[in-house]
Amino acid sequence: KELVLVLYDYQEKSPREVTVKKGDILTLLNSTNKDAWKVEVDDRQGFIPAAYLKKL
């Protein structure tokens, strides 16, 4: 599985998104959309803007 590093805090703005903190390391589920990547956070799945993430 692929991991990503969170570069900036992000507060979810819709039910399809998830809230993350800078420095979190998350499982990347889908990065086919260049604008928003799907990740898993504490058994929740949701989207975060790709600009907030860096592949490890």
Score class of each variant (00 low, 15 high):
1 K>I: 12
1 K>L: 11
1 K>R: 14
1 K>Q: 11
1 K>E: 08
2 E>A: 11
2 E>D: 11
2 E>R: 12
2 E>P: 12
2 E>F: 12
2 E>V: 14
2 E>N: 12
2 E>M: 13
3 L>Q: 12
3 L>C: 13
3 L>Y: 15
4 V>Q: 00
4 V>Y: 06
4 V>R: 01
5 L>I: 13
5 L>V: 10
5 L>M: 10
7 L>G: 01
7 L>M: 09
7 L>E: 02
7 L>S: 03
7 L>K: 04
7 L>Y: 02
8 Y>N: 12
8 Y>A: 14
9 D>M: 02
9 D>T: 05
9 D>A: 06
10 Y>M: 01
10 Y>R: 02
10 Y>Q: 00
11 Q>K: 13
11 Q>W: 14
12 E>Y: 06
12 E>I: 13
12 E>A: 15
12 E>F: 12
12 E>R: 14
13 K>Q: 13
14 S>F: 09
14 S>T: 13
15 P>S: 12
15 P>E: 11
15 P>H: 10
16 R>G: 15
16 R>A: 14
16 R>W: 15
16 R>S: 14
17 E>Y: 07
17 E>G: 15
17 E>R: 06
17 E>V: 04
17 E>N: 07
18 V>Y: 05
18 V>C: 08
18 V>E: 01
18 V>H: 05
18 V>K: 02
19 T>Y: 05
19 T>N: 06
20 V>F: 07
20 V>R: 00
20 V>K: 01
21 K>V: 06
21 K>I: 05
21 K>L: 05
22 K>Y: 04
22 K>Q: 09
22 K>F: 04
23 G>L: 02
23 G>P: 01
23 G>K: 00
24 D>N: 07
25 I>E: 01
25 I>M: 04
25 I>T: 04
25 I>R: 04
26 L>C: 10
27 T>M: 10
27 T>A: 09
28 L>N: 00
28 L>G: 00
29 L>S: 01
29 L>I: 14
29 L>F: 03
29 L>Y: 03
30 N>E: 15
30 N>P: 04
30 N>T: 08
30 N>K: 06
30 N>C: 13
31 S>D: 14
31 S>W: 10
31 S>P: 04
31 S>A: 12
31 S>M: 08
31 S>I: 04
31 S>L: 03
32 T>V: 10
32 T>D: 15
32 T>A: 13
33 N>I: 06
33 N>C: 12
33 N>A: 09
33 N>W: 08
33 N>R: 11
35 D>C: 14
35 D>M: 13
35 D>H: 14
36 A>Y: 15
36 A>H: 15
36 A>G: 09
36 A>I: 15
36 A>P: 02
37 W>P: 00
37 W>G: 00
37 W>F: 03
38 K>W: 15
38 K>N: 06
38 K>F: 15
38 K>Y: 15
39 V>W: 02
40 E>D: 04
40 E>T: 07
40 E>Q: 15
40 E>C: 14
41 V>R: 08
41 V>L: 10
42 D>I: 08
42 D>L: 12
42 D>H: 13
42 D>M: 11
43 D>Q: 11
43 D>R: 12
43 D>Y: 09
43 D>M: 09
43 D>S: 13
44 R>C: 07
44 R>Y: 07
45 Q>T: 13
45 Q>C: 13
45 Q>A: 12
45 Q>F: 08
45 Q>E: 12
46 G>D: 03
46 G>P: 04
47 F>C: 13
47 F>N: 05
48 I>W: 02
48 I>R: 02
48 I>Y: 01
48 I>F: 03
48 I>L: 12
49 P>C: 07
49 P>M: 04
50 A>N: 04
50 A>I: 09
51 A>W: 13
51 A>M: 14
51 A>N: 12
52 Y>H: 08
52 Y>I: 14
52 Y>K: 04
53 L>Q: 00
54 K>F: 11
54 K>D: 08
55 K>Q: 07
55 K>C: 10
55 K>D: 05
55 K>H: 07
56 L>P: 03
56 L>N: 01
